[in-house]
Design a protein around this nucleic acid. Structure first.
Lengths: 149, 149
DNA sequence: TATTGTTATACTCTATAACTATA
DNA sequence: TATAGTTATAGAGTATAACAATA
């Protein structure tokens, strides 16, 4: 069978980025599954641990998801007692999100698994290569239609 | 307001790849919208133009989408008379997909727009940088759980 | 008036199972 | 029995509008 050529699509950086990102996301999802964490839930937990007291709006902006879509994620973390929605004295509209001890512990374990996943996928790249990719990705992201900075 | 840090997530190459890919996909979708082409439809059209006579199964494999999800894409291209489902003498189960003249013309115009989009987003990167990113992306993709080669 | 969190809704993308007609 | 195309369906992810409580 004559094999199919995708040479014209492969010439687009975005095409290869999409495919590689799919592979990375699938691998990360598998790495987090033992902790019953999906990628979005994991990302939210990491940010809450790193930024204790932030609000859902701040978290949504940092994760680049809509506030409305964040609700179920925070619900899940709270139901599992990994985080708390703390009342904020002086503004009763908002919650200050903090991780519980169990949340911080699960976060640490999941980060170890995520780092192992990262190391597995990036094994062929030097630290310098990886840093170059990260800065190139941030440059590309900022070139897109969207916010500044 | 103390701004939120995502330093721990940004250290993951996959995190920056995901965000950059989102920006690229959104920009490409906007670039293709004037042609009434979504990214998947555009990709299918390019592959059919490049590989005349290929089957839907081959196309699905090349695009890494399920055969079932490809049907509506091919339906759309056929309904717009951009491609043809040609009968294959000797095997009545399969179709040989070919682009019409209108399909090839639209493909050419859309490719020009896609190249302009690419140039806009990658403006900060040299040709050498872009080639390095492409090979790094392919290396990462192959390191993921999945097929060989 | 504006903002926070929330609900409901819808649209895309993706994945699976099962069917038909052919081989 | 295996394969190509198809249908139906369900699950994620994402986007918008509207609402109640509060500022």
């Amino acid at each position: 069978m004559p094999s199919v050529s995708d040479a014209r699509l492969r010439a687009f950086v975005g095409y290869t980025m999409k495919r590689a990102t799919n592979a990375v996301q699938a691998d990360l999802a598998a790495a987090l599954a033992p902790f019953d964490l999906r990628i979005a839930t994991f990302s939210a937990l990491v940010l809450i641990v790193e930024n204790p007291g932030l609000s859902q709006s701040q978290l949504a902006e940092a994760l680049a998801v809509e506030r409305s879509n964040l609700v179920v994620i925070v619900d899940d973390l709270e139901r599992r007692a990994l985080i708390l929605r703390n009342p904020v004295p002086g503004d009763r509209r908002t919650y200050a999100l903090t991780a519980t001890l169990a949340g911080r512990r699960l976060c640490d374990k999941a980060l170890v698994a995520a780092e192992a996943h990262e190391e597995r996928l990036m094994a062929g790249l030097s630290g310098k290569d990886r840093a170059a990719i990260i800065s190139a990705m941030e440059l590309i992201r900022r070139a897109g239609r969207g916010e500044g900075t």
